[in-house]
Computed example of a mutant assay.
Amino acid sequence: MSTYSIKDLEQLSGIKAHTLRIWEQRYNLLSPKRTDTNIRYYDDADLKLILNVAFLNDNGFKISKIAGMSEAEMRKEVVSLTEKNLTHDDQINALTICMIEMDEKRFDKVLSTNILKIGFEQTMMNIIYPFLSKIGVLWQTGAINPAQEHFISNLVRQKLIVAIDGQIYKDGGKKFLLFLPEGELHEIAILFAAYLIKSRGHKVIYLGQNTPKEDLLYVYKLHNPEYLLTVITTSPSAENVQEYVNALSERFNKSQILLSGYQIVGQDFTFPKNVKAMNYVRQIKEYLDEIEEVLIEK
């Protein structure tokens, strides 16, 4: 069982700690426990409760009414609301509840509903990516545990693979070789890039996680792609990124190299002429649109 401070509840729910304390005193919403040294803490049940309370309160329910609901009544209202045409922030909060409860069925329902309403690409751009950014911060601060983060990441990964498989390549377009450097395992961004590229009629050669240099070079020589795309999140380490980028540029000098990831975005690197940094996923989409315009003109 995980334990949370009131600051953790504030980060996860978006409700100020001061407000949580008032609700606790006035409506007896929460039941903090105490450690042997008399420090207050909250458990998983408290977190699930306050996430549902926050969600309902954000959607017009008065706190006095919420306080009178049973757990089952509260959950029923939350489920009903997430199936309606809510804001992106509401959907992100709904996914957060699914993550905390590790509720795969509900998570899948929220995603599927949004995909039907606004399409897969917009769901990724406006809901999944902001949601993943949120849980990345929460994971770093210890507000959620690694199991919850892995649970969600794998569900998103499954959705991406299905979406990619649904794109049928036809002759034409450009060749893109996608890979992650040796030691790099964070695959969501590069999978979404594969979807974007393939959905626009280009050919994707996907090598995935932890690609050895020798394998990358072998596939490159075999297919001669016009573009290489990689995402650097944790590997190589910050002090080795510039050297790695320079080596990529020299080794694959006949191709355009597209880079993104935590170790690239906002960093003060010198990029060779055939290397382009992408600060966020929308830039990949914009770059593909530019390629499309060139192809149409030709």
Rank of each mutant, 00 (worst) to 15 (best):
Q283H: 07
R75N: 12
N93V: 04
N210H: 05
Y169A: 07
F151S: 05
Y220T: 01
I291V: 13
G201I: 09
Q140R: 08
L229E: 03
N38G: 08
N154Y: 14
T123H: 00
Q267E: 14
T234D: 14
I127R: 02
Q256E: 10
T234P: 09
I205R: 05
G173C: 03
V156E: 01
M74D: 04
V294Y: 02
R282Q: 14
S255P: 03
V241D: 01
I205Q: 03
G166L: 01
K7T: 02
L177K: 02
K117E: 00
L30S: 09
E10K: 02
Y195W: 15
Y42P: 05
L288R: 01
I66E: 03
T37Y: 15
I264E: 03
S13Q: 05
R40N: 12
K221L: 09
I92N: 04
V79Y: 10
L180S: 12
S112F: 02
D215Q: 12
N114L: 04
S237F: 15
F61K: 04
T233M: 14
I284F: 03
D36P: 11
Y287K: 04
Y280V: 03
K65M: 08
L191P: 06
A189W: 06
Q283R: 00
K203M: 13
K276I: 06
Y227T: 03
V281N: 09
S133G: 15
